[in-house]
């Protein structure tokens, strides 16, 4: 683990009870987040990408592995000071701006909720000032503080959600599909805001998404997850230029191209897990080229390296 690693996920496993049996949502996922980068987790619905984000935030208990934030363990049983550290320095942005704001609370309370929880202000004036600054930072007017969430549009609501996270002055933001529920016309509004905040404050993003065209635009590195396991991890351009795992290829083939001539000629690939012959040699997580990791058995890796 190098010095600039901010968050380290080691062999993470999350299971949910399903009657008597247990359903494994995430299985043996490991990755490091470097300070200041945008790291994206992509995968289809139900692949476990949201679960990873929520496991880091301690919403879901983990069954295996551990999570380290700046070298300190923040998973499993931790004391109050570690919990405090986690809550202040890691924050989350949610998918659905219609569901993620408390409809019966004013914006003033929604944004200052975290401040109240940790008494992060000396007096009422300082709290107001912090709320005002957070609203300005996301391009909203401070007068909005006295209004209710239903008075705002989807893009405005998502920015209120970002202000709520920013007011804690986090270092790491987990963005759980922050633009999937937004109209195409306001997606760029939120993406540009996130990019600006990253630049101004040196934030690190864990960006969870299924929309690869957006992911390519904002990510430094991308990890592809399939049924709770990472199958490929590489730098954004490297992954788009040389996708190795068949699932990644299938995923990339689904990205629409703006040129209808090219789009018509494109062949869609469907991923079928049975193409892997794992009877000899279990798949393992191997580095094919510098910084490019793939899940595969020895035979496959040899083919990909060539």
């Amino acid at each position: 683990m190098s010095d600039d690693t901010i968050l380290s996920v080691r062999g993470l496993g999350v299971e949910f009870p399903m009657g008597r049996k247990r359903f494994t949502a995430v299985d043996g996922v490991s990755f490091d987040l470097r300070r200041g980068e945008t790291f994206s987790l992509v995968g289809e619905s139900g692949s476990g990408k949201t679960t990873i984000g929520r496991a880091i935030m301690r919403i879901h208990p983990i069954s295996k592995g551990e999570i380290l934030f700046e070298g300190k363990r923040v998973s499993g049983r931790i004391d109050a000071s570690a919990e405090r550290l986690l809550r202040q320095r890691i924050q989350m942005i949610f998918q659905d701006p219609m569901a993620s704001l408390n409809e019966r609370a004013k914006i003033d309370y929604i944004v200052s909720e975290g401040l109240y929880n940790f008494r992060l202000f000396k007096d009422e004036a300082e709290r107001r000032a912090k709320v005002e600054k957070a609203l300005r930072d996301v391009g909203l007017i401070p007068e909005f503080a006295s209004r209710f969430p239903h008075e705002f549009s989807g893009g405005q609501r998502q920015r209120i959600g970002i202000a709520r996270a920013l007011v804690m002055e986090p270092e790491l933001l987990i963005a759980d599909e922050p633009i999937s529920a937004l109209d195409v016309s306001i997606r760029s509004q939120v993406i540009n805001l996130m990019n600006r905040l990253k630049r101004d404050r040196g934030l690190t993003y864990l960006f969870i998404a299924h929309d690869l065209s957006v992911v390519r635009f904002i990510s430094d590195r991308i990890a592809v997850i399939y049924r709770g396991r990472l199958v490929e991890l590489a730098g954004a351009e490297e992954l788009f230029a040389h996708p190795l795992h068949p699932y990644t290829r299938a995923l990339l083939s689904a990205v629409p191209l703006p040129d209808p001539e090219v789009e018509r000629l494109k062949k869609h690939v469907a991923y079928d897990p049975s193409i892997h012959d794992y009877s000899q040699g279990k798949p393992s997580w191997s580095e094919v080229s510098s910084g490019h990791f793939v899940l595969g058995n020895e035979c496959e890796i040899r083919g990909w390296k060539a």
Binding site: M57, M92, D96, A99, S100, L101, G114, M168
Partner: peptide, 12 residues
């Protein structure tokens, strides 16, 4: 609901 998960993330 998601806003309750948001509150838990804020340590409420």
């Amino acid at each position: 609901a998601e806003y309750n998960i948001a509150s838990r993330c804020l340590g409420t």
